[in-house]
Design a binder for these strands. Structure first.
Length: 460
RNA sequence: GCCGCGUUCGUCUAGUGGCCUAGGACGGUUGGUUCUCAACCAACAAAUCAUGGGUUCGACUCCCAUACGCGGUACCA
């Protein structure tokens, strides 16, 4: 069997959701591990929630992460089109097939009637389900030609149990009588998720459906549809949902959820992927830091945990810092995050400060904070500066060779003479030059800043 | 409400009946190094393995109940 996996994002958000990135990662890894193919299909059937440009941004973020699909709306492929709004005829045909076979029926109920029905059911403590009124209608063809609005609902059997096997969780069963006669084709001619996903996964020969656990309760509907059509079923695996620190499903209210946010903050794709990999799964040897290739070698879907993990940005930061420190082309990666990147001094300063900056930032957006004092005088001071010490320092420093060993010697001499602790003198100097109490190693920084500029900052 | 899925340090996890007086990582605390902050090194604290019942010579590991959390219950995905 050829392994084919897919993710099916909806272009209803600003960018790729971190939860989608997580399922994308698992789908990608699983496909590649098995010499299979990884597919992206855009499920844009909800016309009311559509966000302009979302599809492009989702695909861009995926490629930023390096999870490049073998088939997608952009790359095309043997099962094109890969966007559901371009496949409407297909869904309609299959929906009508089901009507003819007696597994689905046309429903002419108005939204108002459905709402009233649900209210009544709720009041009577009944499960809110479609009451089957339109199931008995026989003249539906006539009513359709009369341009009456309708939807198509699947006809779920009243009895029996629908069971499926989940690769991660084992067997899961639902009683049919609790499954609603779900709408599969909407009145605007678009399919609902349930029809779209089943038809496309079958037509595109998806072998493994790896998706979030929010889909578990919908899966019996999909199973029923596979059986109605007489199609073979793929393997199902439901990943645990990523959560907010308060344990609710990861949401933009409580957490940054767009992959673009992490990109803009200077998180590296390697780090983000590595961190995501450690959620609900772990390397056999317990290692925290590993590459996609190492993961691929060791990954088994059966070993994914069922517990929903909390997305902890602190651990991500630690991991990101680790990758930053390991970087070979640090400056190249950091430059886009600096407002000084076009300054003629940038190249020199970036090169000289690299080793000091790397262990001090957890994401690239912090870069400028570390180096800005090289480019501009402090605008404010975190603590008041002792100007007397500064002018004495200035005098002494004017006459020495500008290397950090000499600087250190001079500073320590001054401390001794004036009865101050050396560290206090260092701090005054740091404040005067950088405006801050924390920062890069002082003496090396001064060496890079240069004598003239340093002395001038000891003035004012 | 009903249906489903879960439950090991604050967080991510190891653990598949005896190796567990429960291991690692992040975070925290303390100390070392040191011109600050990081980095680095060392150490410490942190989990009655949700609770209660079974099964077993023996349970974190198997079974059942309860509690709690989460998800679903749309002409959203």
């Amino acid at each position: 069997m050829i392994v084919r996996t897919r993710i099916a994002p909806s272009p209803t958000g600003e960018n790729l959701h971190i939860g989608n990135a997580y399922t994308a990662l698992i789908n990608y890894i699983f496909a590649k591990k098995n010499n299979g193919r990884f597919i992206v299909r855009i499920e844009d059937t909800d016309r009311t929630r559509l966000v302009e440009g979302s599809q492009g941004r989702i695909l861009d973020s995926l490629s930023w992460l390096g999870l490049n699909p073998d088939e997608s709306p952009h790359t095309g492929g043997p099962y094109a089109p890969y966007r559901q709004s371009d496949r409407l005829d297909i869904y309609k045909k299959y929906a009508m097939d089901l009507v003819e076979k007696g597994h689905a029926y046309c429903c002419f109920c108005t939204p108002e009637r459905l709402r009233d029905m649900r209210e009544r059911q709720e009041k009577n403590h009944q499960p809110p389900m479609y009451d089957g009124t339109c199931k008995k209608i026989t003249n539906y063809e006539l009513r359709i030609t009369n341009r009456e609005k309708y939807v198509i609902r699947m006809d779920v059997p009243d009895e029996g149990v629908t069971t499926f096997h989940d690769l991660i969780r084992g067997d899961i069963s639902f009683e049919n009588k609790l499954i609603d006669d779900q709408v599969i084709l909407k009145s605007d001619g678009y399919p609902t998720y349930h029809l779209g996903v089943v038809v496309d996964d079958h037509l595109m020969e998806i072998s493994h459906i790896i998706r979030g656990e929010e889909w578990i309760s919908s899966t019996p509907k999909h199973i029923l549809l596979y059986d109605f059509f007489g199609w073979p079923k793929p393997v199902f695996a439901h990943m645990p949902l990523l959560r907010n620190p308060d344990k609710s499903k990861l949401s933009k209210r409580k957490n940054p959820v767009w992959v673009s946010w992490y990109r803009d903050q200077g998180y590296l794709p390697e780090a983000l992927l590595n961190y995501l990999s450690t959620l609900a799964w772990s390397m056999p040897d317990g290692q925290d830091i590993f590459s996609l290739e190492e993961m691929m070698k060791n990954f088994r879907l059966e070993n994914v945990k069922t517990t929903a993990p909390i997305f902890d940005i602190e651990k991500l930061k630690w991991m990101n810092k680790h990758y930053i420190m390991d970087f070979d082309h640090f400056i190249e990666k950091a430059a886009p995050f600096s407002r000084f990147k076009d300054d003629p001094r940038f190249e020199r300063i970036a090169a000289k400060t690299e080793e000091y900056v790397k262990p001090r930032i957890s994401h690239l957006a912090e870069y400028d904070h570390m180096i800005e004092f090289f480019f501009e005088k402090p605008k404010e001071y975190e603590k008041p500066v002792d100007r007397e010490i500064c002018s004495r320092l200035k005098k002494l420093l004017s006459d020495i060779p500008w290397i950090h060993e000499e600087l250190e010697k001079t500073i320590r001499q001054l401390a001794e003479k004036s009865g101050m602790k050396p560290k206090d003198v260092f701090m005054q100097l740091r404040l005067a030059v950088t405006g801050k109490t924390v920062g890069l190693p002082l003496l090396e920084s001064l060496e890079i800043l240069g004598k003239e500029e340093t002395l001038s900052r000891l003035n004012s």
